[in-house]
Design a binder for these strands. Structure first.
Lengths: 221, 221
DNA sequence: GTGTGCATGTAAGTGGTTACATGATTGA
DNA sequence: TCAATCATGTAACCACTTACATGCACAC
C-alpha cells in the first residue's frame, strides 16, 4: 500500500572502494529497475525492495519474484554497482542492506540518458484474448468477465488514488508522483475502455449467441 | 498489415482419428493463443499464423517468435488438438498446414469458458520506468522521449484505424473486430496519457533541472 | 543472377517463475 | 502459543528469445 516512498530508514550509505573499472554492462531491464530502486536515498533490504516495487512499479512496469530481486542484488554487487552491509548486533534482526555505489549511479545515469528508448511498451491482456476468441464463449459469460475486470480495475484505481492523496504535495518525490498520476489516469482509461467494449459486445453480439465465424463446420477438426 | 482475417485459403480441414482421450491439458497461454488462431475456419501454416498474430494479437496480447509458433504447433499436434497436412505436389511450395481437431476445439472452449479469468493484464512500460527514475535524466531529454513515444503511438494508431476501416461491416468476424476497436481506443488513450504526462513534466519539473530527491549526496554510493 | 519473401526448423541461452527450505521476530 | 511478517536464499523448471542453417519461388 505504500506508494511513493519506501518505509526504510534513511541511513546514509556505507563507504566503498572504487571497484574494478568496467564499461557500463549490458543488463536486463530488471537489473536496471532494481538499481533504480536503489538510486533513491537510503539503503534497504531485498525484502523492502520487493514491497516497494509491488506498491509502485507494479502499476506500470513489473512485479518481480522475491528470489529474482535477491539474484539481481547479488549480480549488482558483483559488478560493483551496489554495496551491501550486514546488520550489526545492535539491530534486532539479521539482514543485509544494499546501497548504490558511485559506479552504479554513473552506469544508471548512462542507461537512463541513453538514446535508445529501452523498447516499446508490452501489453499482455488475457481478457482481450478471450474477447478476440469470443465465438467460443457464451456471450453472457464474456460480458460477465468484462464486468469483473471493470470491478477489479476500479479497486486498483482506488489504491492508486489513495496513494496519490497521501503523497500530494511532496515535492521531493516528483517523478514517482508523476508516474503514479499516469497510472491513475491509465486505470481510469482502462475502465472506460472496458465499458465501451461492453457496449460493443451488447450491440454487436446481442443478448444471446451470434457472431459465429462463417462455415465453421463442427466436424472440421 | 492484414488485420482481422488471415490471408490463407479457406480450405476445409483434413479428416483425423480421435486421438488418445486426455483431460484438457494444462497449457501455457501461448499454446491457447495458437490454438485460438486455429479455431477460425481454414487451415494454415506456421508462417501464416505468425503474420496473422503480428497483425492482430500483437496489439493487445503478444507477438511470438516464429520458432515458438512451430514449437507450439508440434505440441498441439502431439496432444491431438491439431492435425497437420503436408502440401501435395500440386501446390507450388512444400509446406505443412495445420487445422484444429474436434478435441482441440473442445479443450479450447473449455479454456475460454473457464471460470478463472486467465490472469490480470500485464503491462511493461519502459518509458514509465524512465519517468519514475526521472531524477537521473535531463528534463528535456525525458520530455523528448515522451514525445517520441507519442509519435510512435500515433503511427500504430493509424495502422489500427486503417485495418478497422477495411474490416468495417464484416459481420462474420465480429469478435476480432471488437478487440481491434478496443485496441484503437486504447492507443488513443495512450496518446492522451502521454500528453498529460508531458504537461505534468513541464509543470512539475520546470524547463530545467529540479525535482531531485532529497539529501542524495553524490558521494553516498 | 540477385535479393526478397515464403517456409521450416535446431541449438543454445536467459530471464524469470514456482516450490521448497529455513529461521527469527512480532503481535494477537 | 500460534499465526503473520520479516528475511534470505537454493533448485528446478519453463516459456520464450536469438542466432543459425537451409532451401525454394518469384520478381526485378
Amino acid at each position: 500500500m505504500a506508494a511513493l516512498r519506501p518505509t526504510s530508514p534513511q541511513r546514509s550509505g556505507s563507504p566503498q572502494r572504487p571497484g574494478p573499472p568496467q564499461r557500463p554492462a549490458e543488463l536486463p531491464p530488471t537489473a536496471w529497475a532494481v538499481l533504480g530502486l536503489l538510486s533513491f536515498p537510503g539503503e534497504r533490504t531485498g525484502y523492502e525492495l520487493k514491497k516497494w516495487a509491488d506498491a509502485s512499479l507494479r502499476h506500470f512496469y513489473w512485479s518481480p519474484a522475491i528470489s529474482q530481486i535477491y539474484a539481481e542484488l547479488r549480480r549488482l554487487e558483483a559488478l560493483g554497482y551496489a554495496s551491501s552491509r550486514r546488520s550489526g548486533p545492535e539491530e534486532p534482526r539479521a539482514k543485509r542492506s544494499y546501497a548504490i555505489t558511485a559506479e552504479g549511479r554513473a552506469a544508471l545515469v548512462g542507461w537512463a540518458g541513453g538514446a535508445e528508448d529501452a523498447g516499446p511498451p508490452v501489453l499482455k491482456h488475457p481478457l482481450l484474448l478471450r474477447v478476440w476468441l469470443g465465438h467460443l464463449t457464451a456471450p453472457e459469460h464474456l460480458r460477465a468477465l468484462v464486468s469483473e475486470h471493470i470491478a477489479h480495475t476500479r479497486g486498483e484505481l482506488k489504491e492508486v488514488h489513495d496513494a496519490l492523496a497521501r503523497a500530494d504535495g511532496d515535492e521531493a518525490w516528483t517523478h514517482p508522483q508523476i508516474a503514479l498520476r499516469w497510472s491513475g489516469r491509465r486505470l481510469e482509461a482502462e475502465v472506460d475502455l472496458a465499458e465501451a467494449m461492453l457496449a460493443d459486445l451488447t450491440e454487436m453480439t446481442g443478448p444471446s449467441a451470434s457472431g459465429q465465424p462463417p462455415e465453421d463446420s463442427p466436424t472440421d477438426g
